[in-house]
Computed example of a mutant assay.
Amino acid sequence: MHATTKQTYGERAAQHPNACAKRMLELMETKKSNLSLALDVTTKKELLEIADKVGPYICLLKTHIDIVDDFDQDLIEQLLALSKKHNFMIFEDRKFADIGNTVKHQYGNGIYRIASWSDITNAHGVPGEGIITGLKEVGLPLGRGLLLLAEMSSKGALTYGEYSSKTIEMARRNQDFVMGFITQRRINELPNEDFIAMSPGVGLDVTGDGLGQQYRTPHQVIVESECDMIIVGRGIYGKGRDVEAEARRYQEAGWVAYEERIRQ
Protein backbone atom coordinates (compact mmCIF):
# COMPACT_ATOMS: atom_id res chain seq x y z
CA MET A 1 0.00 0.00 0.00
CA HIS A 2 1.39 3.39 -1.01
CA ALA A 3 1.82 5.90 1.84
CA THR A 4 -0.73 8.34 0.40
CA THR A 5 -3.54 5.78 0.66
CA LYS A 6 -3.36 6.08 4.46
CA GLN A 7 -3.39 9.88 4.45
CA THR A 8 -6.56 11.95 4.45
CA TYR A 9 -7.41 14.06 1.44
CA GLY A 10 -6.64 17.13 3.56
CA GLU A 11 -3.20 15.85 4.55
CA ARG A 12 -2.38 15.17 0.92
CA ALA A 13 -3.68 18.59 -0.15
CA ALA A 14 -1.37 20.34 2.34
CA GLN A 15 1.74 18.97 0.61
CA HIS A 16 0.57 18.50 -2.99
CA PRO A 17 2.81 20.10 -5.67
CA ASN A 18 0.02 20.42 -8.28
CA ALA A 19 -2.22 23.48 -7.73
CA CYS A 20 -5.33 21.95 -9.29
CA ALA A 21 -4.92 18.65 -7.43
CA LYS A 22 -4.43 20.56 -4.19
CA ARG A 23 -7.72 22.42 -4.73
CA MET A 24 -9.48 19.17 -5.63
CA LEU A 25 -8.29 17.35 -2.50
CA GLU A 26 -9.20 20.30 -0.26
CA LEU A 27 -12.68 20.33 -1.77
CA MET A 28 -13.13 16.58 -1.27
CA GLU A 29 -12.16 16.94 2.40
CA THR A 30 -14.46 19.95 2.94
CA LYS A 31 -17.52 18.39 1.26
CA LYS A 32 -16.87 14.86 2.48
CA SER A 33 -17.34 13.67 -1.07
CA ASN A 34 -15.24 11.68 -3.54
CA LEU A 35 -18.11 11.47 -6.02
CA SER A 36 -17.89 12.72 -9.59
CA LEU A 37 -21.05 12.69 -11.68
CA ALA A 38 -20.60 11.81 -15.37
CA LEU A 39 -23.42 13.89 -16.81
CA ASP A 40 -23.90 12.75 -20.41
CA VAL A 41 -27.15 14.42 -21.43
CA THR A 42 -27.94 16.21 -24.69
CA THR A 43 -29.97 19.27 -23.64
CA LYS A 44 -28.98 22.40 -21.75
CA LYS A 45 -32.11 22.23 -19.59
CA GLU A 46 -31.46 18.67 -18.43
CA LEU A 47 -27.77 19.30 -17.79
CA LEU A 48 -28.45 22.32 -15.59
CA GLU A 49 -31.38 20.74 -13.74
CA ILE A 50 -29.43 17.60 -12.84
CA ALA A 51 -26.28 19.56 -11.94
CA ASP A 52 -28.34 21.66 -9.52
CA LYS A 53 -29.87 18.57 -7.87
CA VAL A 54 -26.60 16.66 -7.44
CA GLY A 55 -24.48 19.72 -6.65
CA PRO A 56 -24.54 19.33 -2.84
CA TYR A 57 -23.24 15.74 -3.05
CA ILE A 58 -20.50 15.85 -5.68
CA CYS A 59 -16.98 17.21 -5.70
CA LEU A 60 -16.68 17.12 -9.49
CA LEU A 61 -19.08 17.39 -12.44
CA LYS A 62 -17.87 15.58 -15.55
CA THR A 63 -19.28 16.82 -18.85
CA HIS A 64 -19.19 15.98 -22.54
CA ILE A 65 -20.08 19.48 -23.66
CA ASP A 66 -20.00 18.64 -27.38
CA ILE A 67 -23.05 16.34 -27.11
CA VAL A 68 -25.33 19.17 -25.91
CA ASP A 69 -27.58 19.97 -28.88
CA ASP A 70 -28.43 23.52 -27.80
CA PHE A 71 -25.02 24.53 -26.43
CA ASP A 72 -24.49 28.26 -25.96
CA GLN A 73 -22.39 30.54 -23.79
CA ASP A 74 -25.27 30.99 -21.37
CA LEU A 75 -25.00 27.28 -20.53
CA ILE A 76 -21.39 27.81 -19.47
CA GLU A 77 -22.27 30.86 -17.39
CA GLN A 78 -25.08 28.99 -15.60
CA LEU A 79 -22.86 25.96 -15.07
CA LEU A 80 -20.15 28.11 -13.50
CA ALA A 81 -22.77 29.74 -11.26
CA LEU A 82 -23.92 26.29 -10.09
CA SER A 83 -20.32 25.24 -9.42
CA LYS A 84 -19.95 28.25 -7.12
CA LYS A 85 -23.37 27.75 -5.49
CA HIS A 86 -22.70 24.10 -4.61
CA ASN A 87 -18.89 24.18 -4.45
CA PHE A 88 -17.91 21.61 -7.07
CA MET A 89 -15.27 21.60 -9.80
CA ILE A 90 -15.87 20.93 -13.50
CA PHE A 91 -14.16 18.29 -15.63
CA GLU A 92 -14.71 18.40 -19.39
CA ASP A 93 -14.09 14.82 -20.52
CA ARG A 94 -12.67 15.84 -23.90
CA LYS A 95 -10.12 13.02 -24.25
CA PHE A 96 -7.75 15.00 -26.45
CA ALA A 97 -5.79 12.75 -28.80
CA ASP A 98 -4.01 14.87 -31.41
CA ILE A 99 -0.65 16.59 -31.89
CA GLY A 100 0.33 19.41 -29.54
CA ASN A 101 -0.38 22.32 -31.90
CA THR A 102 -3.87 21.01 -32.70
CA VAL A 103 -4.94 20.27 -29.13
CA LYS A 104 -3.71 23.69 -28.02
CA HIS A 105 -6.35 25.27 -30.28
CA GLN A 106 -9.03 22.68 -29.46
CA TYR A 107 -8.55 23.41 -25.76
CA GLY A 108 -8.30 27.19 -25.82
CA ASN A 109 -10.32 28.20 -28.88
CA GLY A 110 -13.25 27.10 -31.03
CA ILE A 111 -16.87 27.41 -29.93
CA TYR A 112 -16.36 25.59 -26.61
CA ARG A 113 -13.24 27.40 -25.31
CA ILE A 114 -12.84 24.57 -22.78
CA ALA A 115 -9.87 26.02 -20.91
CA SER A 116 -11.84 29.15 -20.02
CA TRP A 117 -14.36 27.28 -17.81
CA SER A 118 -13.30 23.69 -17.15
CA ASP A 119 -11.01 23.14 -14.14
CA ILE A 120 -9.86 19.77 -15.44
CA THR A 121 -9.64 18.03 -18.79
CA ASN A 122 -8.04 14.81 -20.01
CA ALA A 123 -6.01 13.32 -22.83
CA HIS A 124 -4.83 10.06 -24.33
CA GLY A 125 -1.10 9.38 -24.33
CA VAL A 126 -1.18 8.00 -27.89
CA PRO A 127 0.31 11.07 -29.67
CA GLY A 128 3.25 11.25 -27.25
CA GLU A 129 4.40 13.97 -24.87
CA GLY A 130 3.66 16.82 -27.28
CA ILE A 131 -0.01 16.53 -26.38
CA ILE A 132 0.80 17.46 -22.77
CA THR A 133 3.08 20.30 -23.88
CA GLY A 134 0.38 21.79 -26.11
CA LEU A 135 -2.36 21.58 -23.49
CA LYS A 136 -0.05 22.85 -20.76
CA GLU A 137 0.71 26.05 -22.71
CA VAL A 138 -2.97 26.93 -22.46
CA GLY A 139 -4.05 25.35 -19.18
CA LEU A 140 -1.20 25.84 -16.74
CA PRO A 141 -1.32 29.66 -16.66
CA LEU A 142 -5.05 29.35 -15.86
CA GLY A 143 -4.46 26.95 -12.97
CA ARG A 144 -6.06 24.03 -14.81
CA GLY A 145 -5.22 20.36 -14.35
CA LEU A 146 -4.82 17.47 -16.78
CA LEU A 147 -5.71 13.81 -16.32
CA LEU A 148 -4.18 11.15 -18.55
CA LEU A 149 -6.06 8.03 -19.56
CA ALA A 150 -3.98 5.18 -18.21
CA GLU A 151 -6.74 2.56 -18.21
CA MET A 152 -10.38 2.50 -19.33
CA SER A 153 -13.36 0.58 -17.93
CA SER A 154 -14.75 -0.70 -21.23
CA LYS A 155 -14.36 -4.36 -22.16
CA GLY A 156 -11.48 -5.02 -24.57
CA ALA A 157 -9.85 -1.61 -24.04
CA LEU A 158 -6.29 -1.36 -25.40
CA THR A 159 -5.11 0.88 -22.56
CA TYR A 160 -2.82 -1.53 -20.73
CA GLY A 161 0.75 -2.83 -20.69
CA GLU A 162 3.33 -0.66 -22.44
CA TYR A 163 0.73 2.00 -23.29
CA SER A 164 -0.06 2.47 -19.61
CA SER A 165 3.62 2.45 -18.64
CA LYS A 166 4.58 5.10 -21.19
CA THR A 167 1.60 7.26 -20.18
CA ILE A 168 2.70 7.14 -16.54
CA GLU A 169 6.27 8.11 -17.50
CA MET A 170 4.96 11.16 -19.37
CA ALA A 171 2.91 12.17 -16.35
CA ARG A 172 5.95 11.97 -14.06
CA ARG A 173 7.79 14.44 -16.27
CA ASN A 174 4.89 16.93 -16.14
CA GLN A 175 3.61 16.86 -12.57
CA ASP A 176 3.02 20.63 -12.50
CA PHE A 177 0.13 20.12 -14.96
CA VAL A 178 -0.73 16.40 -14.91
CA MET A 179 -2.66 15.91 -11.67
CA GLY A 180 -3.61 12.28 -12.07
CA PHE A 181 -5.16 9.52 -14.13
CA ILE A 182 -8.40 8.03 -15.30
CA THR A 183 -7.61 4.52 -14.16
CA GLN A 184 -8.87 1.30 -12.63
CA ARG A 185 -6.22 1.18 -9.91
CA ARG A 186 -3.90 3.43 -7.92
CA ILE A 187 -0.79 4.20 -9.95
CA ASN A 188 1.52 5.89 -7.41
CA GLU A 189 4.62 3.71 -7.23
CA LEU A 190 7.49 6.05 -6.37
CA PRO A 191 8.14 7.72 -2.99
CA ASN A 192 6.47 11.14 -2.64
CA GLU A 193 4.36 10.50 -5.75
CA ASP A 194 0.72 11.50 -5.43
CA PHE A 195 -1.29 11.30 -8.62
CA ILE A 196 -5.06 11.45 -8.10
CA ALA A 197 -6.74 8.27 -9.34
CA MET A 198 -10.26 8.72 -10.72
CA SER A 199 -12.14 5.57 -11.61
CA PRO A 200 -15.11 5.37 -14.01
CA GLY A 201 -17.50 2.46 -14.31
CA VAL A 202 -18.86 2.55 -10.76
CA GLY A 203 -22.28 1.12 -9.93
CA LEU A 204 -24.10 -0.10 -6.84
CA ASP A 205 -26.85 -1.99 -8.66
CA VAL A 206 -25.52 -3.44 -11.94
CA THR A 207 -22.35 -5.04 -13.31
CA GLY A 208 -22.62 -4.08 -17.00
CA ASP A 209 -24.73 -2.24 -19.59
CA GLY A 210 -24.67 -4.56 -22.63
CA LEU A 211 -22.43 -2.13 -24.54
CA GLY A 212 -19.12 -3.16 -23.01
CA GLN A 213 -19.22 -1.06 -19.84
CA GLN A 214 -18.19 -2.99 -16.72
CA TYR A 215 -19.17 -1.70 -13.28
CA ARG A 216 -17.47 -1.98 -9.88
CA THR A 217 -18.70 -0.95 -6.44
CA PRO A 218 -17.35 2.07 -4.53
CA HIS A 219 -15.73 -0.34 -2.04
CA GLN A 220 -13.90 -2.18 -4.83
CA VAL A 221 -12.69 1.10 -6.33
CA ILE A 222 -11.70 3.04 -3.18
CA VAL A 223 -10.57 0.28 -0.80
CA GLU A 224 -9.44 -2.63 -2.96
CA SER A 225 -8.00 -0.67 -5.92
CA GLU A 226 -7.02 2.35 -3.75
CA CYS A 227 -8.44 4.93 -6.16
CA ASP A 228 -9.42 8.39 -4.89
CA MET A 229 -12.61 9.21 -6.73
CA ILE A 230 -15.63 7.32 -8.05
CA ILE A 231 -17.16 8.44 -11.35
CA VAL A 232 -20.85 7.55 -11.60
CA GLY A 233 -23.25 8.24 -14.45
CA ARG A 234 -26.52 6.48 -15.20
CA GLY A 235 -26.58 4.92 -11.73
CA ILE A 236 -27.56 8.39 -10.50
CA TYR A 237 -29.68 9.93 -13.27
CA GLY A 238 -30.85 6.90 -15.26
CA LYS A 239 -34.50 6.57 -16.25
CA GLY A 240 -36.88 6.45 -13.30
CA ARG A 241 -34.22 7.27 -10.70
CA ASP A 242 -34.52 9.85 -7.94
CA VAL A 243 -31.47 11.89 -8.88
CA GLU A 244 -30.97 13.58 -5.52
CA ALA A 245 -31.47 10.39 -3.50
CA GLU A 246 -29.10 8.40 -5.71
CA ALA A 247 -26.43 11.13 -5.56
CA ARG A 248 -26.64 11.08 -1.77
CA ARG A 249 -26.44 7.27 -1.75
CA TYR A 250 -23.28 7.21 -3.89
CA GLN A 251 -21.70 10.09 -1.98
CA GLU A 252 -22.24 8.21 1.29
CA ALA A 253 -21.00 4.89 -0.14
CA GLY A 254 -17.85 6.52 -1.53
CA TRP A 255 -17.11 8.30 1.73
CA VAL A 256 -17.66 5.19 3.87
CA ALA A 257 -15.21 3.31 1.63
CA TYR A 258 -12.64 6.12 1.92
CA GLU A 259 -12.92 6.20 5.74
CA GLU A 260 -12.41 2.42 5.81
CA ARG A 261 -9.29 2.76 3.67
CA ILE A 262 -7.57 5.40 5.80
CA ARG A 263 -8.35 3.38 8.97
CA GLN A 264 -6.66 0.23 7.68
Rank of each mutant, 00 (worst) to 15 (best):
L47S: 04
E49I: 06
I50A: 13
K53C: 06
G55F: 11
I58F: 10
C59P: 04
C59W: 04
L60M: 15
K62R: 14
K62A: 11
T63H: 08
T63G: 07
H64I: 08
H64E: 11
H64T: 09
D66R: 05
I67P: 14
I67W: 09
I67K: 07
V68G: 03
V68Q: 03
V68L: 06
D70I: 08
F71A: 08
F71M: 09
D72M: 06
D72N: 15
Q73P: 00
D74T: 06
L75M: 15
Q78P: 01
L79R: 00
L79T: 01
L80Y: 03
A81G: 02
L82M: 10
K85P: 01
H86K: 03
N87F: 07
F88W: 10
M89N: 03
I90D: 00
I90V: 15
F91C: 08
E92N: 13
R94A: 11
R94I: 10
K95D: 12
K95W: 14
F96M: 08
A97Q: 12
A97E: 09
I99K: 05
T102K: 01
V103Q: 04
Y107T: 02
Y107H: 12
G108R: 05
N109V: 08
G110R: 07
I111Q: 13
R113S: 11
A115S: 15
A115L: 12
